[in-house]
Amino acid sequence: MSVLTEISENLQKGKAKIVKQLVQQAIDEGIPVKQILDEGLLSGMSVIGEKFKNNEVFVPEVLVAACAMNMGAALLKPLMAQEGVEAAGKVCIGTVKGDLHDIGKNLVKMMMEGKGLEVVDLGTDVSPEAYIDAAQNQGCQVICCSALFTTTMGVMEEVVKAAETAGIRDKVKIMVGGAPVTQDFCEKIGADKYTPDAATAADAAVELCKAI
């Protein structure tokens, strides 16, 4: 088994320490950094994402896999900068104002990182202004809003409006998601993309970043 396949398989099992060792081994063997990232870490995370979408693995399995990915990615990061490997795009994500639930938001963030995106995590209870600020000052191409309650998802509409007011609506795409959010709601508030699960959200964000 190639070291890249081993990285992918151990990542899927959440074996963080082994993944870290194997990534180091791959670096030492002279495998290009981009290849270690794509064919080792991201390919493993992609399998986890697909399984999560199909109800084959659940929150704990995704979290341990993402932890393993992060351990491996930490070794690659300085080398990527040196070799000029660029992220697939830059996204900011947060749970909207008044809402403190972050399990879903964290899963989406991990899946997006698993697709090679750079993700700015704004945390929970995020005001519309904070999303706009991140988009304007940190160059995020996509804003992702999460909410668990029907009572807080209304804030997403304020984010769309704030982007209009700030004059950046044509430069940034707005994604929405969370238990009560639907395609209809997304259309009604004028957001760009609704996705029903974390893995689909990550794929959609990559597409949106490409399009901009």
Binding site: G14, V59, P60, L63, V64, C67, D102, I103, N106
Partner: peptide, 9 residues
Amino acid sequence: GNDLFMDMY
């Protein structure tokens, strides 16, 4: 907190 999920491993 959310670390509970990681603790399960």
